[in-house]
Design a protein around this nucleic acid. Structure first.
Lengths: 133, 133
DNA sequence: GGTTCCCTTGACGTAAACGTCAAGGTTCTG
DNA sequence: CAGAACCTTGACGTTTACGTCAAGGGAACC
């Protein structure tokens, strides 16, 4: 028997509102079943939610995130379908790798900035380690 | 004599509209000077624009991007100001590093997905290298 | 000197991603 | 059996990041 989740349990666990989960369902990102009127989320939905939230942290739109999620749903598509999916996945990978370069560049620059501030503080005789607490 | 840029030159170079550049100025992200009515962007503005666009690719809001840009403007603030700036920068770095972990996780999963598709295609006797062109 | 072309400042429109009621249905608890 | 505490479906509001006119100013070309 698969574990299931109420809308609130999932919402609390991931610090989103139930409105958000309903919204994601309306956008076809989650597919809860129903017991009577009420939504029941599966473990699979939970996994998708994790991916959705990570996608958001990375700056992707819900539409892009849906595209990515669909990449994992390789149903019984034919060869052509598989090939299209493969190409999309490869493109995403390239985009993500370029995004990682952006991240690295930003980190490097911020670290440079930190060093400058640190030496400014040092000049003024201040210890700048993790002092500011 | 510093090189300067018209609004159109900058817009074309970075594939944004002039409206966007005016909008960024209105949000205090760019600080073009004026010659008569017309905006004149400095090399410094160009640099800031690069950072803005990278920030956007990384999913930051313009407000967050402004905060980061301001980190580089260490004017003549006192020790306390410097220390606050330093802490903000360090926090950003930590956030970016966590974002990099997200990127890496996403890449890994997509690569797994690719491998699965590739073996599915191989079963069907299809060569999946860069075939799809 | 009219037309064209770029610039300007409003001002209103819009898509995305929810927030926030409103109105009502179920279930559990005292 | 009345609340309380969940859930539901609308439906309208809000913020962000611009797009898209509208109305007009200054230079440049023919």
């Amino acid at each position: 028997m698969e574990e299931t989740y109420t809308i609130q349990r999932l919402a609390k666990e991931f610090r989103v509102t139930s409105r958000t989960l309903r919204f994601y369902e309306s956008k076809d990102l989650l597919h809860p079943t129903r017991v009577g009127m009420n939504r029941v989320f599966s473990h699979r939905d939970r996994g998708r939610l994790i991916l959705i939230l990570r996608g958001k942290r990375l700056g992707f739109s819900l539409a892009e995130i849906k595209e990515m999620l669909d990449l994992y749903e390789l149903g019984d598509g034919g060869v052509e379908q598989l090939r299209v999916t493969l190409e999309k996945a490869r493109r995403r990978i390239r985009e993500l790798e370029s995004q990682r370069e952006d991240v690295d560049a930003a980190v490097t620059e911020l670290q440079d900035g930190c060093r400058q501030i640190e030496s400014l503080l040092a000049e003024k005789g201040v210890d700048a380690r993790v002092a500011a607490e």
